[in-house]
Computed example of a mutant assay.
Amino acid sequence: MNKVPSIFDRRLLALRRLRAESMAVPGADFLFARAAEDLGERLASVQRRFSAAAIIGPDTGQLAATLAAAAPIGELKHVAIEDGPTGERLALEPASLDLAVSVLALQWVNDLPGVLAQIRRALRPDGLLLAVLAGGETLKELRDSVTAAESELRGGASPRVAPFADIRDMGGLLQRAGFALPVADTDRLVVRYDSLFALARDLRAMGATNVLTARDPRPLTRAIAARAAEIYTERHADADGRVRATFELVSISGWAPDASQPKPLKPGSAAMRLEDAIAGAAKTRNGDGTV
């Protein structure tokens, strides 16, 4: 049995989230709100009723309200991602849900394939998973600036920004977990700040600061932080001096397999060759076979 990697210190993550809740900074949940709104729009396009649904991970209340407005849902429950001796676990009974949703929680799990497999088992046939998680482009400017400053002043850099999910891997992870009709796409949001320090305040208010297990126990010194802010401005500022911060939102969806779902054609079963279809379309368009 493969050992689950320990990428994130989830105990520290819980403490950071509690601190963020106590801060209650107005507007600090803008990223969660944006992701929840996007998920709600996707759910509304499905146009069906879900008798039993679950929110996987934290919710400020926005996601539950968004779901209620997007689709008719019977029972809705909240399920925490719990830490166990062999990895994260979800307190979900097999085949107990028609819908599972998650916003900005799955990027913090150490065993994403395992959590996706648990969600798949909890879905009834033709049940739906919709989730949004932070993608690999998230905070790329911050990663670049802090790494450069720490390398310059310490002669080496430790990981400070999490290795978020790559969209190119998500479809494969969904298939590996047993989902049918997997879809993954991405949306990039660029937020402008007065400085690196303003961005850092927002990250603290989100409970999204460094919780990597391999983090350097030494805090950034004032000199390194100041140099990182200088590099950030040099490399990632607009003409007005404000700096850019990229947030990539990766949206994924997958269905629990069911006989009613469309099936791909078997190789070699097509009724027409691709070359013949292209030639026919060209003749129809121009009347003379030219494109």
Rank of each mutant, 00 (worst) to 15 (best):
R154S: 12
R160E: 13
V146S: 10
M170V: 13
R154P: 05
N110F: 05
V101P: 12
P159C: 10
A134W: 04
K140S: 15
V115F: 08
A149L: 05
D126S: 10
V161H: 06
D144T: 12
T138V: 01
P94M: 03
P159R: 03
A105T: 05
L97H: 09
R124W: 00
L133K: 07
R121W: 03
N110H: 11
A148L: 08
L173E: 08
D126Y: 05
L116I: 07
S96K: 10
D144Q: 12
A122L: 10
L106Y: 09
G172S: 11
A100P: 01
E137M: 15
L128I: 07
S145K: 06
L123R: 02
I119R: 06
P113D: 11
V109M: 11
L104Y: 04
L116E: 01
S102A: 07
E93C: 07
V161Y: 05
L128T: 00
R124K: 06
L123S: 06
T138Y: 00
D169A: 13
G136S: 15
V101L: 09
V161A: 02
S158H: 13
T138R: 08
P94T: 10
R154Q: 12
V103R: 01
L173R: 13
S102D: 03
A100W: 02
T138M: 08
M170A: 03
S145C: 09
L104S: 09
M170Q: 07
V109A: 14
D166C: 04
V132F: 11
G114S: 06
R168G: 14
L104M: 03
R124D: 09
I119Q: 02
N110E: 08
T138G: 05
L106I: 02
A162M: 11
S145L: 09
S96Q: 04
L104G: 05
I167R: 13
D144K: 10
R143K: 11
V103T: 12
E152F: 08
V146K: 01
L106C: 00
L112A: 09
P159K: 08
D111V: 07
A105I: 01
S96A: 14
A117E: 07
D126K: 04
A165R: 05
V161N: 03
S158Y: 12
A95V: 13
R154F: 13
D126I: 01
L133G: 00
T147W: 02
P125M: 05
V115C: 12
A165F: 09
P125H: 00
E137L: 14
L133I: 06
R160S: 14
P163C: 10
L129A: 00
V101Y: 09
A148T: 13
T138F: 06
P113T: 03
E152M: 13
D98G: 14
L153N: 04
